[in-house]
Design a protein around this nucleic acid. Sequence first.
DNA 1: ATGTCC
Length: 410
Amino acid sequence: MREPSETSGPAAASVHLIASKDTWIEGGAVRQLEQTARLPGMRAAVGLPDLHPGTGYPIGAAFLSELVYPALVGNDIGCGMGLWQTDQAMRKFKSERAAERLSGLEGPWDGDLDGWRAEQGLAPSAFDQALGTIGGGNHFAEIQAVAEVLDATAFAALNLDPERLLLLVHSGSRGLGESVLRAVIDQHGHQGLAPAATAARDYLQAHDHAVHWAEANRRLIATRLLNALGMDAERLLDVWHNLVQPIDWAGETLWLHRKGAAPADRGPVVIPGSRGTLSYLVEPLLQSRLPFAPATDPSLRSLAHGAGRKWKRGEARPRLSTLQRPEDLRKTALGGQVICDDKELLYDEAPEAYKAVDRVVADLVDAGLCRVIATLRPVLTYKLRRAAGLRDRQRAHKPHGARKPKRDRR
DNA sequence: ATGTCC
């Protein structure tokens, strides 16, 4: 573990960075970590090895505070990862055939929403048309195969079969979380809220609903995708990496904010790479460490939530477009296939835009925070499918005058 | 990240 340099200002929370010297971390992200740690009421802050800059606050970090900071959780409240084991044998899977069967996941679900919501115990919201949709950015649904089993005992304990395909879903609360954040920010700005105050209570109630919505959303995404492929599956895990929750610490209640940080106290988690690299199924090693205290657990019971972005959104296309065409990006180095009809998104989420997940996981293992159970190989990554007529064209019709002149074909 | 943006 390396420690950020001392900075001036009021002595505040302890700040830790869990990363080896070989792991690239942007200076701006470390500055955001230190600045956030100086907010009122902060007790401890940790940057995980996937730390990278966010808008105002870093991503890949956890914060322990006396106050509740909605802005720190961000807009995608409840975002996380769900993992399913399917009944589909890897050897019999035809990924091109499967890709043809996947479409329409962007539109509203045509099932019995009321019945399903009741089954999930999920209160209705104005955003329920979006239930079962993946969204944009780094969200995805991915069919994976087991690449290597490194801990056979833990693997078997999860009832995992190395021959069967898995489904990993990464999504969150979409527009609902955005509306919850906007409502509290409009009233109170970015300030920390006293947990007992009405503002915090109202926020936390809406936050908890968004967290529930996000999990239900991942479940419905999985259901839709599995139905389309004619597969059955069992959920192995579901964890949130964007949320705030109360945590008991030496008799007092503090608030643990995870901003792109996976929990180390909810069983195994998947640390996804990019669509072109392996993902890691890991077993956290902190579950028996009680009582909870930052002094004995500087990781704040958290793990990296992925590889971490290396390039900001929008930066990848100009860097890569001369080297790789969109059709090149729809096949990956590990033989996987990518469904993504949005060019900007295709470039933004290219493997090159991410740090090396192997390095990130190695840092966690070296810090004694987790053990690798297995590595998972991407087979078919679903990002965004546009209606057939609109694929690889301009998103919307523009007036003729606004159209660029046709360029010569190379 | 965002029923994304005019």
